[in-house]
Design a protein around this nucleic acid. Structure first.
Lengths: 157, 157
DNA sequence: AAATAATAGTTGGTTTTGTAACTAACAAGG
DNA sequence: CCTTGTTAGTTACAAAACCAACTATTATTT
């Protein structure tokens, strides 16, 4: 099984990114899956609501670049488990405002601390400068604006 | 929609990695999907065979960390489309050796060149040093040994 | 204001993945 | 050998993702 070709898959950025993403997701998945029976899109929604307090499904979808059907189903599950509450916007009755219930807040705080320590654990392998650069580059690749310049200017789907 | 919490999802490595991976995969996906009707695991298998010439399903799975059922299905599709040929190992009739047919080789060469130019396009956003560091860090996070030190010592699943 | 278009979110049917159980072939121990 | 255990790969069933069509509501056009 020796290489007959100079191309290296293990240098190809999309491959590397996917592998790193899968690997790093796996360990964190255990927390939200085992402890709260959540799926990936569910913790993402939970985190958005935990961070921003109140959002509509559309706003979450735009910020996280998650398709609306995934949001819809994630919200439905979170609402069924009483982690989020929904309230119609009376100005525009098509949309509804989502926020965490106390139980949702508790789950969020718990998972946030798991996330923080897991992130630290990953970051630990590198110097602080390296990690900062890594995050910058990943944001670049993901089309996310830098954390300080808070402008929403996306290519859209 | 202003933050009420200091935790930033856009700094959380698993989130960033996933978003960057999804985004970077999207453009490359168009090539193998539209032109060859392939799925992600199929081009991965194709590339492994293109690079290494001949492998068993197990070897591909180990190297790419893809589960054997995904390999099995990917190989089945590639074989049905006459991109790979299978031949039983006569010493151990459980396993079979896979290799690309001429059509598979052609598809591989085409996609490889797409991959190379797409990778260059991604890398272009950064300095060569930054890209080199990025690849190193991603390999670290993905549990892939450096490209020169060719040892297979994985945590296993 | 009636008709048309656009938007927020949901639902249904198909494809893909995930997981476990399965078959076939080999390996080891009694 | 003949049971028991392992390994390579496949298959089956359930869960999840994908994509398109749908409902309800608001905005725009004539």
């Amino acid at each position: 099984m020796t290489e007959k070709d100079d191309f290296s898959l293990q240098d190809f950025l999309p491959f590397l990114l996917n592998r790193a993403a899968e690997d790093s997701s796996l360990a964190f998945q255990a927390h939200y899956k085992n402890r709260y029976g959540m799926l990936r899109n569910e913790w993402r929604v939970l985190f958005h609501l935990g961070i921003f307090g109140q959002m509509t499904a559309k706003e979450i979808g735009e910020r996280a670049k998650i398709h609306k059907t995934k949001i819809s189903r994630a919200v439905a599950k979170l609402a069924a488990r009483r982690f989020v509450s929904r309230s119609r916007d009376e100005k525009d009755r098509r949309s509804e405002h989502l926020r965490l219930t106390p139980a949702g807040e508790a789950a969020y705080r718990d998972l946030r601390s798991q996330a923080q320590s897991y992130d630290a654990q990953l970051a630990q392998r590198f110097t602080p400068q390296e990690v900062a650069l890594l995050r910058d580059m990943l944001r670049q690749l993901a089309g996310i604006e830098a954390p300080d310049s808070q402008e929403g200017e996306q290519g859209g789907d």
